[in-house]
Design a protein around this nucleic acid. Structure first.
Length: 777
DNA sequence: TGGTTTAGCCC
DNA sequence: GTACGGGCTAAACCAT
């Protein structure tokens, strides 16, 4: 094959042409051939091709014309290397004539552009980004229906993109090529109900509807300081009722009395604003949580993405964006624009998405259980935890600020005396230059200067200074300034807990993250109980190891946790390793192995913690598993799930699906899989316990103020009766939840600590309260 | 201004 | 040569 464009082409290598029916109505256009394609002279027969064909309805078919934007191979590193990138760009331009000639030779219905280069060559528009336009019909002179941009399968194999979306996009192209109608969102009509009389009329329409979709637009993300601008409701996606903020009080009756099921997209956010405005809002259905139940990957659950995927809803962001920018809020958007392009579509799209997603969840018994029994109740729990917030000890924050700022200034002076006036210890570039170029210290792992590397370098004064500087700088920026600023409004921090933040079912926390506060007493004590109250922390004891024991039914682990004498697992393992006369150091090592096991630790990782040789560490790991063979088998079975194409499912209905397995990511997927079940179960036990106890605690004026994977923090009056009642309630439920969910082979154990400052909670204080209340533990 | 990399904190 | 699961934030750096 030789065409005129090849004269100007900078590559001029061996060429790979097209395959399939030259007259096909459906064309796949890829980027450039890979190694396998070059060898066999056909496009899409390597790993990318395999993924493409398994994602194609009906599989590999000669009725599809398959070709590439470039017919020569461009080395895979081209996107990182500027010289190669320029070459690739030039090649794609010179080759586009050949591509378009081939396409134009016969009438086409649909062209699938796989990746940016295919899209650019087909449209001539280099501003397109595949990640932004994928799955949308782009009109084209070359195809009657148009171009459907889709992520390149190679990108998915590298770990970017989302397989569900990829499959849906390909299926959509086939649907269109086979004469199917384009997905068409319903664009709702809307009306503003701005007077009490108008509201009364709207309420009459709405109050007996079985399902109402609700959304609010606000001036910001903080329900304490920001305000609702407008509220939208709909029971039919064709029509949205809009209510300006000033008439919202007139909706009280609707929210309080309606028997409707209330639908939101991330209702945890909306209901906090609505409750502040005096409405009895509740979340019965939630499209964000439905989407997460169906796909535990992150980054695909915002309403724009869902509506775009399900019915090709237009992206109106660009129409709203010009009115935003620094210092401006949604209140600065003209009402007409806000209603037409934001509020009305959001309310209607939520309803439209719900119809599809709810059915998909209902069709799967595990997901139905997860959604109704865990995700929706968690939304209710967390909207309350977020609103209540965690009290901040401003004195401790101020003290920490003074101490850390003072120390940081000292350190900086000393560091600059060695590194020079312009030396910035926060800059990894500066640190690497000083250590490896000027001081000629030995390099490890490239030019990394992280904690472990510094610890292994010869202990020069500058290294000690940099180590301490990093610690103090972190303490100051992340854990003093952020907490100080976040609590400036009402003396509390109100973190946001994401239900969909992890692939295991753990919660995540942000702004601020209350799940990674340093354990140092003076830092944890930035959080405390307000005057007259105390904090209680209730922890699950070794939750993940107990989960592993229960799931694997391992004889050794089960005997440890069912042991009436209560000899700890660390002691039991130490005895197995060293006999009855083990030393305290031995016990420490045993503890590290025990905790490492649940994370799938390797000998290298274990050496980092306990020292010694790699062989010795491997010996401990082997011995541990020899001693717990059923646990070993269970973990191995989980590890092999990605290769076997098996989806892991927990008792709570959490799933770990294995979408794309490649040689590169296999190891990572196996590690995730082996960790998933016990991590997931441990956090669900905590979450369910919190859901169960919340209302009972409120009657005692006790409030959950933080949740950290296997523990919860509770604020309550400093009264022994209350403390004892709360402790008993929470401990009982944390221990009962696993039994109720069929996790019965080992008991779970919860423990309570009490005090005024988070850094100084003790079990003695809890026991004292039990004594004082004349109750027994 | 926004995205990526490197670092450090937690369970 | 191979690092151990799940997260979030800040600062520097680099591209646009």
């Amino acid at each position: 094959m030789y065409v005129e464009g090849c004269h100007d082409c900078p590559v001029r290598g061996k060429k790979v042409g097209s395959r399939g029916n030259p007259k096909a109505g459906l064309v796949y256009v890829g980027e450039s051939p890979g190694v396998e394609e070059l060898r066999d002279g056909e496009p899409f027969i390597g790993p990318s091709g395999k993924l493409l064909w398994v994602s194609t309805p009906g599989g590999d078919s000669p009725e599809i014309l398959t070709t590439n934007a470039m017919c020569c191979r461009i080395p895979g590193k081209a996107d990182e290397n500027p010289r190669l990138k320029a070459l690739k760009h030039k090649a794609s331009i010179t080759c586009s004539g050949r591509l378009l000639d081939e396409i134009k030779a016969h009438p086409r219905r649909v062209i699938v552009a796989l990746g940016n280069y295919a899209l650019w060559a087909l449209t001539g528009n280099y501003n397109f980004k595949i990640s932004q336009v994928r799955g949308k019909i782009i009109p084209s002179q070359y195809a009657t229906i148009g171009i459907i941009p889709v992520m390149h399968p190679a990108a998915l194999l590298r770990g970017t993109g989302n397989l569900r979306q990829f499959r849906r996009d390909i299926a959509y192209a086939h649907h269109l090529a086979n004469g199917g109608a384009p997905y068409q969102p319903i664009e709702p009509r809307y009306e503003v109900f701005g007077t009490p009389q108008a509201v009364a009329k709207a309420v009459k329409d709405l109050i007996n509807q079985p399902l109402i979709s609700c959304d609010v637009e606000t001036t910001g993300f903080n329900s304490r300081t920001d305000k609702i601008i407008d509220l939208g409701l709909a029971y039919n996606p064709e029509f949205v009722y809009l209510f300006p903020a000033e008439v919202i009080p007139h909706l009280q009756r609707l929210f309080a009395l309606s028997r409707s099921r209330w639908l939101y997209h991330n209702g945890k956010f909306d209901v906090q604003f609505l409750r502040k405005a005096g409405l009895k809002a509740r979340v019965d259905e939630d499209t964000l949580l439905l989407s997460y139940a169906l796909d535990e990957q992150k980054g695909v659950h915002d309403l724009e993405t869902i509506a775009g995927d399900l019915f090709d809803a237009p992206d109106y962001k660009h129409l709203v964006r010009p009115y935003l920018g620094k210092g401006r809020t949604y209140a600065d958007i003209p009402k007409g624009v806000l209603y037409k392009y934001r509020l009305a579509p959001d309310v209607s799209y939520t309803l439209q998405a719900f119809r599809q997603l709810r059915e998909q969840v209902r069709a799967d018994v595990h997901l139905e259980k997860l959604y109704t029994k865990t995700l929706i109740p968690a939304s209710d729990l967390l909207s309350y935890v977020e609103t209540h917030g965690l009290y901040v000890n401003q004195d401790q924050v101020n003290t920490n600020q003074e101490v850390f700022e003072g120390r940081l200034a000292e350190l900086l002076t000393q560091i600059k005396a060695i590194g020079g006036e312009n030396f910035n210890p926060n800059s990894t570039y500066d640190v690497a230059e000083l250590l490896f170029d000027k001081m000629r210290l030995p390099r490890k792992r490239g030019r990394s200067t992280d904690k472990k590397v510094l610890a292994k370098l010869p202990q020069k004064p500058i290294i000690k200074l940099i180590q301490e500087h990093r610690k103090v700088a972190k303490a100051l920026s992340t854990y003093v300034y952020a907490i100080r600023d976040a609590s400036a409004h009402d003396g509390r921090v109100h973190a946001t807990y994401l239900i969909h933040g992890t692939r295991t079912g753990r919660l995540s926390s942000n702004e601020p993250n209350l799940q990674n506060i340093p354990r140092a007493k003076e830092q944890r004590s930035m959080f405390m109980a307000p005057p007259g109250k105390v904090l209680m922390e209730v922890d699950l004891n070794q939750a993940e190891l107990r989960s592993l024991a229960a799931l694997s039914n391992d004889a050794f682990l089960c005997s440890v946790y069912n042991d009436p004498a209560g000899v700890s697992i660390h002691d039991r393992v130490a005895i197995k390793f060293w006999g009855a006369n083990f030393t305290p150091e031995d016990k420490m090592k045993a503890k590290n192995v025990n905790f490492g096991i649940v994370y799938g630790i390797t000998s290298t990782g274990l050496v980092e913690q306990i020292g010694g040789s790699k062989q010795e560490a491997q010996g401990f790991i082997d011995m541990w598993f020899d001693n717990a063979p059923e646990a070993h088998t269970f973990i191995k079975k989980c590890r092999s799930a990605p290769v076997r194409g098996v989806t892991l499912i927990t008792a709570f209905g959490r799933k770990k699906r294995h979408m794309i397995v490649t040689r590169e990511n296999l190891h990572e997927l196996q590690n995730e899989a082996s960790n998933f079940p016990h991590q997931s179960i441990a956090s669900d036990i905590t979450l369910h316990a919190a859901i169960r106890v919340r209302r009972r605690l409120i009657k005692l004026n006790a409030h959950i103020v933080n949740l950290i994977h296997d523990s919860m923090l509770i604020e309550m009056p400093n009264n022994p009766y209350v403390i004892a009642a709360v402790g008993k309630t929470v401990i009982t439920e944390m221990q009962q939840v696993p039994r109720d969910w069929g996790i019965t082979r080992v008991p779970f154990k919860a423990e309570a600590k009490v005090g005024t400052r988070w850094g100084y909670l003790t079990d003695d204080a809890y026991k004292a309260a039990l004594r004082d209340s004349h109750m027994t533990a």
